[in-house]
């Protein structure tokens, strides 16, 4: 699995979508043949993946908003979603 680096700028893949599911009162990630029910922290991270912010900026923003943020967990979470191609990463140099 490719790891994400601080300069990557993640964004949701065009075929994936984050939505609020009123029946479960949770955010969900929808993609072809896949549904992931997100925890509060997962939806906070994904909400910041706009293709503009770098991973470092996303982590910094999470620290501003929340008390307990594990930088490694954020990176792992993004790497996992990138491996499944729900999230795309560009670092400005290879795209």
């Amino acid at each position: 699995m490719r790891t994400v680096s601080d300069t990557d700028r993640p964004r949701l893949a065009p075929h994936a979508r984050m939505a609020f599911d009123p029946a479960r009162e949770r955010h969900v990630l929808l993609a072809p043949e896949a549904v992931a029910v997100l925890g509060g922290s997962g939806s906070a991270v994904l909400g910041l993946c706009d293709g503009e912010r770098t991973v470092a900026e996303i982590v910094a923003e999470l620290h501003r908003r929340y008390d307990h943020v594990s930088d490694d967990e954020v990176r792992l979470f993004l790497a996992r979603l990138a491996a499944k191609r729900y999230v795309e990463v560009s670092d400005g140099s290879d795209e």
Binding site: A23, L29, V37, G39, G42, V45, S70, R80
Partner: peptide, 14 residues
């Protein structure tokens, strides 16, 4: 920090 599914409380797919 993970994309887990809660226990089923309704169908996900039709």
């Amino acid at each position: 920090m993970e994309a887990t599914s809660r226990p089923p409380d309704g169908p996900f797919g039709l």
